[in-house]
């Protein structure tokens, strides 16, 4: 029977058990990597670095994790912090706060446009909301905690993101 995250973390912390860590890695890394790619477009191949740093930071901070959330949520929170730091460095988005005007960032509805590309064009806050909620299945409460925003803001961002995607994609879908 699969061991719980908690049992595996206990083994890693108590004895440095590499097999236990690899089990944790294999359980959670696909989601972390997918999230990193979707939030950053894998700019400069950095999704791999984000995941690497997430595990390193997590391993430095096991003692701080109080199991009030799932391990997946906690790891994703570390990943999001890393992504925010990178965004600030890249100066693409000054913060992950709510963006209300996306009219200037609309992609052209050409043949290359698809859902992934449209998501990639969303402002950072919208993109986080739709990736975390609609793709990865986090609740608004979890997203609020992860992104340090209100639950209402998370819902608003998701709603606006969906509206934007619909607006961008409908012309294409209505002709196919």
């Amino acid at each position: 029977m699969d061991q719980s995250d908690r049992e595996l973390v206990t083994r890693v912390v108590a004895t440095g058990d590499e097999a236990a860590f690899r089990a944790l890695y294999q359980r959670h890394t696909p989601t972390l990597y997918r999230t990193a790619v979707r939030l950053t477009d894998d700019r400069d191949g950095t999704a791999e670095d984000f995941v690497h740093d997430t595990w390193i930071r997590a391993s430095e901070r096991w003692a701080e994790f109080e199991w009030r959330s799932s391990l997946r949520t906690w790891l994703t929170g570390i990943l999001l912090n890393r992504v925010r730091e990178a965004r600030r460095r890249w100066a693409r988005q000054p913060t992950d706060e709510l963006v209300t005007d996306i009219s200037t960032d609309c992609p052209e509805p050409d043949d290359r446009l698809d859902l992934e590309a449209a998501v990639a064009k969303l402002p950072a806050g919208y993109r986080s909301a739709i990736v975390l909620h609609d793709v990865e299945g986090f609740s608004h409460e979890e997203i609020a905690s992860l992104c340090s925003i209100d639950v209402g803001t998370s819902k608003s961002q998701l709603s606006r993101a969906r509206r934007a995607l619909r607006r961008w994609l409908e012309p294409r879908w209505s002709t196919t």
């Binding site: 004895t15 696909p30 990597y33 995941v51 690497h52 390193i56």
Partner: peptide
């Protein structure tokens, strides 16, 4: 899917930091 090399990269880093050790008997 994450690159196959990533797992080795992370476990190597954690071993170097003393976080991971060979599994106990």
């Amino acid at each position: 899917m994450p690159p196959a090399r990533l797992e080795a990269r992370i476990t190597d880093a954690l071993r170097a930091r003393g976080v991971l050790r060979p599994s106990p008997r």
